[in-house]
Design a protein around this nucleic acid. Structure first.
Lengths: 251, 251
DNA sequence: CGTGGCGTTGATAGTGTTCAAAATTGGTGG
DNA sequence: CCACCAATTTTGAACACTATCAACGCCACG
């Protein structure tokens, strides 16, 4: 289960307190990170060198910084490498909504393919890093390597399913159910990455959560407090421990 | 503007009244329909024969019938050819939510790529037809033809943007704003297909609309009535005429 | 040791839901 | 072609849930 190549959350947290001079400019992505995060399953050994040539760099992003902003020209796809980010979309009247939470291994920037410009922004929730994948090179590789093509298609399709699910959360669930669904989603994704299902550091603010879940920050806060009183979770600010997973599932 | 190859809505409506014996089994998709709906822009003439071989059939779907259902094995992508369909996702407790409205030219089934099974259902809102595109053959073609690869990627990315936008509608807008946004969206998409921006036959029920917009059918009905009283629209059941487009845009 | 961002909690108001009933529509079969 | 019946739509009234406004506490940071 545990994936030792993924940068641990604790490491990231520590680096927030004592900010080691992280390379701000592009750095070579380690093959090990690539194997597990950027390119994943299904490639033969023959394909590895091609991929190495493709994913040529990584980029550090400070908390609050954007990997790309809505309106930016689209050239690269990204894959979250460490840390976490949110995607944000803006209405014409200025209202903003958080449309996604991206953890290590999640793709970023697919929205730019259709028009050549990004329609949402990707902002780091903590000091993070992303792999940079030049789209033109990726396209080329996908035409050579069926496994890579499959991988890309699956990534896009997964993203689509994730957004559909979130549409259902927003359209059909009550406030309690939304918060519970969100906590369970983060719990599961944390587990998939080899971390604890039960305890995690949610770097979103209550306002971000509210925006993502279609409710106000006050309602998020109240809901979490109520969950805590009921013995479902233990929340100390951003640090959240799930006590009664089944209880959350049943509402 | 007007695209003469698209099957007109009135034709479809008439066929509802006097159901001409439509071929229920697979029929060869006309090249003309393919050119404009299934495969579109950016292919060279060399690519046409390849595409013809690929999109080998169409399928008629009666109102209420499903092109595919959640849980079905994924083999084909589809493109709406005439009529309109809704995509529906189900919660484990049985609650259903409409996640999309697909008009002629819109793709269907992309959600199946990631797991090999469809996660939502596609149900015809009126007697409709869809082009069938075997996914394995499409993948193969995409590796031969860059234009086809681009087209597929853009289609998926567009879908992603559409869903993000809907997330924002569900998460940030009031009931009035949601209904207005929906009407404007349908109006625009109708216009893009060569039909009237101002008048269209919305085959969704008030319940479908409510589900899609995250509100009850009663609220949808009330909102439409209020819009009518304010002189923004003229709604006679499913037939909707937009009177004050700017008024709708400004809320 | 302020200061500002973030989180919690309370009181009140508003928006949309729920329940109910009547009106209308449209598809089906005679 | 018409009549009927079920599905859909509309409208009303009471209620529930969540938003809003406001005050306060906490912590990290300069």
């Amino acid at each position: 289960m545990l994936n030792p190549t993924v940068v641990s959350h604790t490491t990231v947290r520590r680096s927030n307190r004592t900010p080691v001079a992280a390379p701000r400019t592009s750095t070579r992505c380690s093959v090990c990170a690539m194997r597990h995060l950027c390119m994943p399953q299904g490639l033969t050994l023959d394909d590895l060198p091609k991929l190495e040539a493709l994913i040529c760099s990584a980029r550090s992003v400070r908390r609050g910084e954007a990997v790309y902003r809505a309106g930016d020209a689209f050239d690269n796809l990204y894959v979250a490498r460490s840390g976490s980010l949110k995607t944000v979309m803006a209405h014409r009247d200025g209202r903003e909504q958080v449309t996604g939470l991206r953890l290590a291994g999640d793709p970023l920037g697919i929205d730019g393919i259709s028009t050549g410009f990004h329609t949402c922004s990707a902002v780091a929730l903590e000091d993070s890093s992303v792999c940079i994948i030049p789209y033109s090179a990726l396209k080329h590789l996908c035409r050579e390597t069926g496994a890579m093509q499959d991988r890309l298609h699956r990534l896009m399709s997964e993203q689509l399913i994730r957004e559909s699910s979130q549409m259902m959360v927003l359209g059909s669930l009550s406030a309690d159910e939304r918060v519970a669904a969100f906590l369970l989603d983060v719990s599961e994704r944390n587990g998939q990455r080899g971390y604890s299902h039960a305890e995690f550091n949610l770097r979103m603010t209550r306002e971000d959560m509210g925006s993502y879940l279609g409710m106000t920050l006050e309602t998020v806060s109240r809901t979490l407090s109520r969950f805590q009183k009921r013995g479902l979770i233990d929340a100390q600010g951003k640090l959240i421990r799930i006590i009664d997973l089944e209880g959350l599932r049943h509402l």
